[in-house]
């Protein structure tokens, strides 16, 4: 067993892990964060996607010991107390989830994209979501939701500044 410390959704954690434990198993079994899903377990489906140090990765293909000292964001870390993350709101408003199994991974891939490029083209969104398979909703509404969330985030970023300038 190895002792590791990492930040999960802003909270510092010290954990003891076996060598063969994946980050996904660590999150689900030891941190009780079951938003990241076990789908294919070999990096094809993207259901386990989490954000590590700002980049979307498949948690099933990273060993827990490799997450030592790193910053991990899961779907549970997105919503604030008062409201959902704009991506979560947009996925709901656009009807982008049916069964929802791909949702957490899909939203985190979209978040990594919007954090890096707040105004992505449809092609960029498709590229960013290519590693997340959806088998029931289809992709059109997912892309619409990411575009809508991007608009919300951009408006929030410029809105208050403009308001402050007017005062």
């Amino acid at each position: 067993m190895s002792e590791i410390t990492l930040v999960v959704n802003g909270e510092q954690r010290a954990l003891s892990v076996a060598a063969e434990t994946t980050l996904l198993e660590l999150l689900r079994a030891q941190c009780n964060l079951t938003g990241a899903k076990l789908g294919c377990d070999v990096g094809d489906c993207g259901a386990c996607t989490v954000i590590v140090d700002g980049e979307a990765v498949n948690a099933c293909l990273m060993l827990a010991v490799q997450a030592d000292g790193r910053n991990v964001v899961t779907i549970e870390g997105l919503a604030g107390r008062a409201r959902l993350h704009p991506l979560q709101e947009a996925f709901e408003a656009c009807g982008s989830l049916q069964c929802g199994f791909c949702g957490p991974g899909m939203i985190l891939s979209a978040k990594a994209l919007l954090d890096a490029a707040p105004d992505p083209s449809a092609a960029e969104i498709r590229d960013a979501l290519a590693g997340n398979l959806c088998r029931c909703t289809g992709y059109t509404k997912l892309i619409e939701a990411v575009q809508a969330a991007g608009e919300t985030i951009r408006a929030a970023a410029t809105g208050p500044r403009r308001a402050a300038g007017q005062e």
């Binding site: 993207g46 293909l61 590229d127």
Partner: peptide, 9 residues
């Protein structure tokens, strides 16, 4: 190569 998640790791 692969998708974003694969390329990041």
């Amino acid at each position: 190569i692969g998708a974003v998640q694969t390329r990041n790791l």
